Computed example of a mutant assay.
Amino acid sequence: MPTPPLPIAAVVYPPALDIGAFMRTAVAALAERGVRLGGVVQHDARPNPDDPCAMSLEDLASGTRFTLSQDLGSGSSACRLDPGALAQAAVAVRAAIEQGADLVIFNKFGAQEAAGGGLRAEMGLAAARSIPVLTAVAERLAGDWERFTGDPATMLPADLDAVLAWWQAVSTAR
Rank of each mutant, 00 (worst) to 15 (best):
S62R: 09
P14M: 06
A101C: 13
A28I: 03
Q99C: 13
D82L: 03
E98L: 14
V27G: 00
D102R: 04
R33V: 07
L72H: 08
I97S: 00
R80V: 06
S56D: 09
L30Q: 04
D102W: 03
G84L: 12
V11P: 00
A90M: 01
I97K: 00
D50V: 05
G38Y: 02
S69Q: 11
S74M: 06
A28W: 05
V40I: 14
A10L: 02
E32Q: 15
A61N: 02
D71M: 04
D71S: 12
S76N: 08
L68N: 04
A31Q: 13
A90P: 01
A92V: 02
S62V: 06
D71N: 15
C53D: 15
D71P: 09
V40D: 01
D51A: 14
R80L: 07
A87K: 08
G73Y: 04
T25S: 13
G34A: 11
A29P: 06
R36M: 08
V93E: 02
F22E: 07
D50M: 11
E58C: 09
G84V: 10
P52A: 10
S74C: 08
L60I: 08
L57C: 10
C79I: 06
Q88W: 02
N48T: 12
V12N: 06
P52F: 07
Y13P: 01
A89N: 02
R46E: 07
L17H: 03
R36I: 06
I97Q: 00
E98S: 15
D50W: 12
L86P: 02
G63C: 10
A26R: 00
A28F: 03
V41K: 00
A54N: 04
G39Y: 01
R46Y: 13
P14W: 08
I8P: 00
Q88Y: 06
A45P: 00
P52S: 07
A26G: 04
L37R: 08
V35L: 05
Y13N: 09
M55D: 01
D50H: 13
R46W: 13
P15Q: 10
S62K: 07
S56G: 14
P49A: 13
V35P: 02
A96N: 04
G100Q: 11
D71Y: 12
M55S: 10
S76I: 05
V40K: 02
G100C: 08
A89F: 03
E58A: 10
L81V: 14
R80D: 04
N48S: 15
G34P: 07
R24W: 05
G84F: 11
M55I: 01
Q99H: 15
V12K: 09
L86Y: 03
R94V: 12
E32W: 04
